[in-house]
């Protein structure tokens, strides 16, 4: 039993942290969000991430990826969440995950090399729901209500991507619909692919939570009232302790799920629900607490904590929120107990 990252994984994390600190400071995030038609992505960042091979980190080598796993992908997303990076990365890796794990060999050959190199942008989401990174995506994996999924070439007639302005101007979102005769079904295990996607989103939420916690700690150590740092007041310090509890809970569940996705896929469904439930709760609670602990400043447009809060809200709602996954888990456990008794 070893919950630690390998040296290589630690190196990926450190490299990502350093790179994004330079290329995706809050100044840059703000610039993307405050553009006339947000988000205004930085093309240099997109191509740099592509050159580094990040979009293909979990795509098999046969199709131009790095052939690494859910843990490494989770690390990258955690760091992108930590930076609140305004770049169309999430949708691309989620589409690639679904096509890689549930696509036909033809679908993989057609889409994976472009997605892995970052030259082709993708998105994944449910029909009728908000789909992150849908505007600008060349390929969308659209989930239907019955547990199936369709791969859509957005250049085709009959596919509509409607841009939706959400509360998060750092990421483009849209709704996707398609005529019934358009697109190809994903023949494989769609549920497992969606589980992997949920774990990846949980990774981003862990990073968002970690950043919100760190920003809050820095602020409450600095900000003084009654001649002492406000972080010395238990009403504030206990809130910070609670933020750590949420963040570490999400981290435990998400790291476990990312590991299980590759090492013990029979646990994937349950682990994914666990990770998404814990991380969605953490993202929302921790970023809300960050605003509160920053006081009036935290409620201003000028402070940066609101970018994290907004991203957390969208991520939490995406692919099922805390409540949905909790209910799923209770019923999974109930079924398991019933089977054991029978």
């Amino acid at each position: 039993m070893n919950f630690d990252f390998s040296d290589d994984q630690r190196e990926i994390k450190r490299t990502a942290r350093d790179l994004l600190a330079g290329r995706s400071s809050f100044e840059r995030v703000r610039a993307a969000a405050e553009a006339p038609a947000p988000p205004a992505y930085d093309p240099a960042l997109i191509s740099e991430l592509g050159e580094l091979g990040w979009p293909g980190i979990a795509v098999c080598e046969e199709h131009g990826g790095q052939g690494l796993g859910a843990v490494e992908l989770g690390i990258l997303l955690e760091e992108l969440g930590y930076a609140c990076a305004a770049t169309p990365f999430l949708g691309t890796v989620l589409a690639a995950l679904a096509i890689e794990h549930a696509g036909s060999s033809q679908q993989r050959e057609r889409w994976l090399p472009g997605l892995a190199s970052g030259e082709v942008r993708g998105a994944l989401g449910s029909a009728g729901a908000i789909v992150p990174d849908a505007p600008g995506a060349a390929v969308v994996v659209l989930l239907d209500d019955d547990g199936g999924a369709t791969v859509l070439d957005t250049a085709q007639d009959g596919v509509t991507v409607q841009t939706v302005a959400t509360i998060d101007p750092t990421r483009a979102s849209g709704r996707v619909s398609a005529r019934a005769d358009v697109g190809e079904e994903l023949p494989g295990d769609v549920a497992a692919a969606v589980g992997r996607a949920a774990i990846a989103v949980a990774g981003e939420l862990v990073g968002i939570s970690q950043r919100a916690l760190e920003m809050t700690l820095a602020y409450v150590k600095e900000r003084k009232q009654f001649d002492i740092p406000v972080g010395a007041f238990q009403a504030v310090s206990h809130r910070c302790a609670q933020m750590l509890l949420y963040t570490e809970s999400a981290r435990s569940a998400t790291y476990y799920a990312a590991w299980a996705a590759d090492a013990e896929p029979q646990r994937l469904a349950e682990a994914a629900a666990l990770a998404k439930a814990a991380a969605s709760e953490a993202g929302r609670e921790v970023t809300a607490s960050a605003i509160q602990a920053h006081g009036g400043i935290g409620f201003t447009w000028e402070a940066d904590v609101h970018w994290l809060y907004k991203r957390a809200q969208l991520d939490a709602a995406f692919l099922g929120g805390t409540g949905t996954h909790r209910a799923t888990l209770a019923r999974l456990v109930s079924t398991r107990l019933h089977t054991m008794d029978a």
Binding site: S249, L274, R326, A327, A330, V333
Partner: peptide, 13 residues
């Protein structure tokens, strides 16, 4: 189910 699932998540975490 959501309430029980909340406790399941806590127990696992």
């Amino acid at each position: 189910a959501q309430k029980l699932g909340d406790l399941h998540v806590k127990a696992e975490v």
